[in-house]
């Protein structure tokens, strides 16, 4: 209990955010919107880590460091992903994920 807010509330918010991100990842056709969904997913995980850290092991910093590293990874992932997207756009003049199937069978 953290000043009246239990841990499970944080977790439920994070879960909702996570699965909304999943839903977005599954339905969005535009690569950039898919990337945004991915950011949502990563963010929800961050919330989990931080909440666990603070509410269960307040004298440690692991959760927070995990979050920091995840943010760093997310930043690099976003930059590379966007580079790829721009490259794809340059070649195919669209970034619709359903049309990228040249490598199938």
């Amino acid at each position: 209990m953290f000043d009246g807010v239990p841990l499970s509330w944080f977790l439920i918010v994070a879960t909702i955010m996570f699965f909304v991100g999943i839903y977005g990842f599954l339905v969005r056709k535009n690569l950039i919107t898919m990337l945004m969904s991915l950011e949502l997913i990563l963010n929800s995980v961050n919330i989990n880590f931080v909440a666990f850290n603070k509410l269960l092991y307040p004298n440690h910093l692991e959760g927070m460091f995990f979050s920091i590293f995840i943010i760093a990874v997310a930043a690099s992932e976003a930059s590379v992903a966007i580079a790829i997207i721009i490259n794809i756009y340059r070649r195919l003049v669209n970034i619709d994920v359903e049309k990228m199937e040249e490598m199938k069978y």
């Binding site: 000043d3 499970s8 879960t15 909702i16 699965f19 999943i22 839903y23 599954l26 603070k54 509410l55």
Partner: peptide
């Protein structure tokens, strides 16, 4: 898929009794 996953997770979270270590850390 999203709803099923979400429900499973939320259900699991609500069922689990987390040990409460901290009450006030303001």
């Amino acid at each position: 898929a999203a709803l099923a996953g979400g429900l499973v997770c939320i259900f699991a979270i609500l069922q689990y009794n987390f040990p409460i270590a901290v009450t006030d850390l303001s």
